[in-house]
């Protein structure tokens, strides 16, 4: 699905990301963990052609993402607030995203049924613009919108942060359920959720992959051990 070849990104002489090789299979739920500044967001931004690689490339379904636009039709993401259109209401925003894929308003609503519990009645029907919603609700809108139109690849940056615990659990359930026909790239600081929901976890440190763990009996311990701090 995704192939990263010799990818490198530098800012003013400092290399912030260096991934010689990484392959993500279809249907994988890949978790990317790392401390702040490890390069997680940089990696995702490169995968979405939002920033320019200093060298190397990211290939999606055989095509370099910086050379074609075809991937935009089956890739969705929620990295930060710049993926929200803040002067629209959530319904209008969902309709807009759905409209890009020729999905009718009705079908958009239907496809958002799984999110009804997550929205908890605060997001839909409130007649508020997205900019007037709380941070958590904005996040919910962004995450939900990323699932409209049945994308094949979903990239979520820190999906669990700023959400209350039960919503975090529900998001995990959504990921598990949706991954039947989707590939997920998720970053997080939350080892607990990552360990539970991801099929594979990659640890980034100062821009390099230092660990690549597939889910197994011992994977959770392995992860926690990596980040242990002397008490």
């Amino acid at each position: 699905m995704i192939e990263i070849e010799n990818l490198s990104k530098s800012y003013g002489g400092t290399e912030v990301l260096h991934i010689p090789s990484l392959q993500v299979e279809k249907g994988e739920i890949l978790g990317v963990v790392g401390n702040n500044g490890a390069g997680k967001t940089t990696l995702f931004s490169l995968a979405l052609d939002l920033i320019e690689a200093s060298s190397g490339k990211i290939v999606s379904k055989g095509e370099d993402v910086s050379k074609t636009e075809a991937w935009k039709m089956y890739t969705s993401a929620f990295l930060d607030e710049s993926f929200l259109i803040n002067f629209l209401t959530p319904e209008e925003y969902f309709d807009f995203v759905g409209g890009l894929f020729n999905i009718s308003s009705v079908d958009v609503r239907l496809s958002l049924e799984p999110f009804a519990e997550i929205f908890a009645g605060e997001v839909m029907g409130s007649k508020k613009f997205i900019r007037q919603l709380s941070m958590g609700n904005r996040k919910k809108v962004g995450l939900a919108a990323a699932l409209i139109g049945n994308p094949e690849l979903v990239i979520w940056d820190e999906p669990f942060s700023n959400l209350d615990p039960s919503t975090q659990m529900r998001v995990r359930n959504v990921i598990s359920r949706e991954s039947e026909n989707k590939t997920f790239l998720i970053s997080s600081h939350d080892l607990y959720h990552i360990a539970e929901v991801c099929t594979r976890v990659v640890i980034l440190e100062k821009g390099e992959i230092v660990k690549d763990v597939r889910r197994s009996e011992s994977s959770k311990e392995e992860l926690l051990a990596h980040f242990k701090v002397e008490g």
């Binding site: 979405l48 890739t75 710049s82 993926f83 890009l100």
Partner: peptide
């Protein structure tokens, strides 16, 4: 500009 990343990465071409 505030939602440019969305327009550049989802559902439509430049």
């Amino acid at each position: 500009s505030m939602h440019f990343d969305l327009l550049m990465s989802r559902g439509n071409t430049v």
